[in-house]
Design a protein around this nucleic acid. Structure first.
Length: 566
RNA sequence: GCACCCGUAGUUCAACUGGAUAGAGCGUCUGGCUUCGGACCAGAAGGUUGUAGGUUCGAGUCCUGCCGGGUGCACCA
């Protein structure tokens, strides 16, 4: 579509139109495929948009414009009818393995921070959605040529760790007994220990002090807790690794709060001297209120760094380690105001970060409907529990198909597609109401539906045998085929748009669903293998091969692998 | 109390960034088809885009007020 628009723009420039030339979609294919609205010209030319459209259409009709079959003025619009044959020829010669990839981001290095669970705590639903979103964003970035560094920042110090440690030490014999048990059980123990500590913390002033003591022990690296701390931390991290690998993520660098808190203190002290921070009630704060934001505490009155201070040091490390062009924080949208304040302070403290820090706000994940599932999962619904439930459901559905036995690989891929597509189908900042039935269903807007389309196409291609030769010319192109050609030609624009601010993989998921629907419309009207004419058969095989390629490519950007059969 | 985000079909979401008759999935109703893969398809019903104004050729989209929701605002992460 980019090439098509370029040709149209050139033609318009040729007849004296300057400035921003943009096109708009046409509501109905019967009146055209692409429109040029003439409203903005009306002011300059002191004439009605309709008159201008008419005169432009006449002028343009004199010219031979690539991809254009016919031009008509329709009210204030100049409508272009595109030539499906020319598009097919152009498209089929361009659909190679790199169709939809770009080099526009070449030379740019993006650090993407996502995942970010807290060691010794559960990997909950929010983390799951975040991981899936972040991974997709990384792929979308790589696809335009950017170098992507995947980083994961995890809180291995702080009050939540103190709570866990208090709980563990209160149950220390049990802790030692768990050393021999499977990872899953060890992690579940940690979860209980955390809850135990958190409860204790809430009981009263004295109990609170018990827990705070552990916080200080962690910060001062007290020898009495070190062995237990290290072990519990490593259990958690191994457990997170199993989830990352299951969902196809692999981090280049894990950052921990324990490695930034000291530097955080130093940076804030430095900033205090420079007048960037001020003292207030014994704490050190950044007066965001002077910059249309709100005030935040960076060092508490005991001199310990808050999350804010640690984030400053982390940012400094990002830049020291990778000199990124952009650091994208994939984090829940409730942190929006927080990031504004931190970025503002950071910009003054570490000027090279200015304009390079970006918060990508994610929506919340809520489970919808299914009461059975909610109760089975209990109050604490973890991310891996949801993964398990999806797998179980998919297995249930697929084992109902007695004609076929499915491999574990296929079951896994279908499950993953269900989960990931559900997370990525709407805008990143939109909350996701996860519905099990619609997510695993093969009809409707779901991952399995898209995989099914690809499997069908691949099945047809297998039956067709060798389709290495392509055909781009045919006597007549049907309306369904034309729609597919137009949609396929849009794909590179879509991948480019997804990689631009606001970064959003859902642009791709929506496109793929739309393409799949157009394929279905085509498929039920146009026979492929049984096409009467050999030319038509080859043309359609080439067409569906192109669709399969784009679908596979696009799904990969979402982190979804396709299957040959399902 | 202040700030930010959001109100679109019964429901879950779109709407190419201000353009033509606001579109899809699910659900509902009607019909088709026993397979180039039926885990299917077609058609229909369903809307005063929360509300009242304003801006202009033109508003779901921009501005203001109100109503309703979410989130964040000092030593948690």
């Amino acid at each position: 579509m980019h090439d098509i628009r370029k040709a149209l723009k050139a033609a318009l420039t040729d007849i004296g139109i300057d400035g921003d030339i943009s096109f708009s979609p046409v509501p109905n294919p019967e009146i055209g495929d692409l429109a040029f609205p003439c409203f903005s010209l009306a002011k300059v030319r002191q004439s009605s948009p309709a008159d201008i459209a008419l005169s432009l259409a006449t002028d343009l009709s004199q010219k031979d414009i690539p991809f254009v079959l016919n031009i008509q003025a329709a009210g204030p619009y100049v409508n272009f009818f595109l030539d499906p044959q020319a598009i097919a020829t152009h498209l089929f010669s361009h659909i190679t393995s790199s169709y939809g990839s770009h080099k526009t981001g070449k030379g740019e290095r993006f650090v993407v921070e996502y995942g970010c669970p807290n060691p010794m705590k559960a990997f909950h639903l929010g983390h799951l959605k975040n991981l899936i979103t972040g991974e997709s964003v990384c792929r979308v970035f790589s696809n335009v040529g950017r170098e992507v560094i995947r980083v994961n920042y995890q809180g291995d110090v702080g009050m939540h760790i103190a709570k866990s440690l208090w709980g563990i030490f209160d149950w220390i014999d049990e802790f030692h007994a768990y050393k021999e048990k499977p990872l899953q059980e060890r992690v579940e123990f940690l979860g209980r220990a955390y809850a135990h500590g958190a409860q204790h913390f809430e009981k009263g002033v004295k109990e609170k002090e018990d827990v705070v003591l552990y916080n200080e022990k962690v910060y001062t690296k007290d020898a009495s807790i070190q062995e237990v701390y290290d072990l519990a931390r490593s259990w958690s991290l191994s457990y997170f690794d199993t989830i990352y690998s299951k969902l196809g993520s692999c981090f280049d660098r894990l950052y921990f709060e324990s490695e930034v808190f000291e530097r955080g203190v130093a940076l804030v002290s430095e900033g205090l001297e420079k007048g960037i921070f001020t003292k207030s009630d014994g704490a050190v704060i950044y007066e965001g209120s002077k910059h249309d934001l709100h005030d935040r505490v960076f060092l508490n009155s005991k001199g310990f760094p808050t999350y804010e201070a640690k984030d400053l040091a982390l940012a400094e490390m990002h830049f020291a380690d990778f000199s990124p062009h952009k650091v994208v924080h994939v984090v829940g949208k409730e942190q929006t105001e927080y990031f504004k304040v931190v970025f503002s302070a950071l910009s003054q403290l570490v000027p090279q970060t200015t304009g390079k820090e970006y918060h990508l706000p994610g929506g919340y994940l809520q489970l919808k409907g299914d009461k059975k599932m909610s109760s089975r999962l209990g109050n604490i619904i973890t991310g891996d529990a949801l993964i398990f439930e999806v797998e179980k459901k998919v297995r249930e559905i697929m084992s109902g198909d007695l004609d076929r036995a499915y491999s574990e690989d296929v079951l896994q891929k279908v499950s993953t597609s269900a989960l990931k597509y559900a997370m990525l189908k709407s805008d990143v900042s939109q909350d996701v109401a996860f519905d099990m039935e619609t997510s695993v269903s093969t009809s409707g807007e779901s991952g399995p539906y898209l995989l099914y389309i690809v499997a069908r196409i691949n099945s047809i291609l297998r039956k067709a045998g060798d389709v290495s030769s392509i055909s781009d010319s045919v006597e007549e192109i049907t309306v369904e085929e034309k729609q597919l050609l137009l949609k396929l030609s849009r794909y590179p624009d879509v991948t480019l748009a997804a990689a631009a601010i606001p970064y959003d993989p859902s642009k791709i998921s929506r496109y793929l669903f739309d393409l799949a629907q157009s394929f279905n419309a085509f498929y039920h009207v146009c026979p492929v293998l049984q096409a009467k004419d050999a030319d038509v058969r080859l043309f359609r095989l080439t067409l569906i091969k192109a669709i399969s390629h784009v679908m596979t490519h696009g799904l990969a950007l979402l982190g979804i692998e396709t299957v040959e059969e399902m």
